[in-house]
Design a protein around this nucleic acid. Structure first.
Lengths: 200, 200
DNA sequence: AAAGATATGTCAACATGACTGACATAAAAT
DNA sequence: ATTTTATGTCAGTCATGTTGACATATCTTT
């Protein structure tokens, strides 16, 4: 008696329903249960708190562009490429690989698409003609702005809410979270804009 | 004349080599080029800076556990489950789904493994016997500690380096980065520890 | 008590974005 | 002239996410 009536009334609670309701309704459920008095393990370590906050913050932070990307049939991988090429025009493939921390085969897949669809332009290096210096086309720049806008707004809002010293403290903390060896490099990287020194 | 000599001398620069050298040597290369004087687009927006820092910080932040996980043939998905079950013992499957923002089919795959290998224990709810309240076994708690230790150290170090007000400011900023609708929920969630109110 | 809704689980097929390994070409460096 | 470097590409695999369909046990409602 439990085998034929299902499909009609259950479907609506199936997959994405759980996802979409998740960030709202179901989260409420979580919270309410949470409100119940706990017993033990109230490990109220602020460190653990920060770790969880990082998880949620990053999740939401990346969700903005994800939605936009879907329109273009692109994924996060494309976004990362667009972002770093946009912020560091003239970057080489090797540099991009180093920054992204992925293999060239992985990069190739998305980069190829981006070049074919003319979001990214490859210019042969003049100093070293083996290099392919990467730039955004106008189209690419447009997409970049579209993608970064919600993120900038989100960050801006958050920093404002957190107070005037937040910009500085937040930046300092993030930098200190990065692997020691890379901190100096990243500092230079984010401090500057382009990757020039040569161009075609 | 370029078709038979390859495999011997190239292999070492192949895949992971690029990855491993990446975070050190190649990053250096990036930095040096960066140092070259730029021309235009010095969009020195601190917002963009923060966005990139977030990317790097989160990347390194998650790399600690990733390495450990490999020993167990687990991935990030397992880590997330272990983390949230560990920090919120007695959490239900539905709640976990809401937090993780994935489908139950995705969760099932990793949860099944974790239960089979006895890192996670399912207890039937007493108030609602349909629920499976999730807990870590001792084994699971050990793994949880092993995984969170490097992250806690990293965060701790970063907060110290960033100054005394960093804990508070960093937490505030992260919270404000989260989707408005979820902020209150997450605050409760991270503030408390367990998910009890009932147990078996 | 019967009917419906909910919490959980499971099979199967598919997409994305990583990875490894192997091989290629053009250009620079030795 | 030889070797190394920067880039690209084919092929196969793996982890993790997604839909869709269906099952079972246990509340909840009528």
């Amino acid at each position: 008696m439990t085998d034929i009536k299902l499909a009609e009334k259950q479907v609506f609670v199936q997959n994405s329903a759980l996802r979409d309701a998740a960030k709202t309704a179901l989260m409420e459920a979580v919270a309410s249960k949470m409100a119940a008095p706990n017993k033990k393990e109230a490990q109220h370590d602020p460190l653990n708190e920060v770790i969880e906050l990082l998880f949620f913050a990053y999740r939401d932070f990346t969700s903005d562009p994800d939605a936009i990307l879907a329109d273009y049939d692109f994924g996060r991988a494309h976004h990362r490429v667009i972002h770093f090429v946009g912020r560091h025009p003239g970057i080489t493939v090797a540099q991009l690989l180093a920054i992204l921390g992925i293999t060239k085969q992985s990069l190739a897949r998305v980069l190829k698409q981006l070049v074919e669809e003319e979001y990214v332009i490859q210019k042969t290096g003049t100093r070293d003609r083996r290099q392919r210096l990467l730039h955004l086309s106008n189209k690419g720049e447009q997409l970049e702005r579209r993608l970064s806008e919600p993120q900038r707004k989100r960050v801006s809002k958050a920093l404002n809410q957190a107070g005037p010293e937040a910009i500085d403290t937040f930046r300092k903390t993030l930098l200190a979270l990065i692997n020691q060896e890379d901190q100096a490099t990243v500092e230079k990287l984010t401090g500057k804009g382009s990757t020039k020194g040569e161009t075609s």
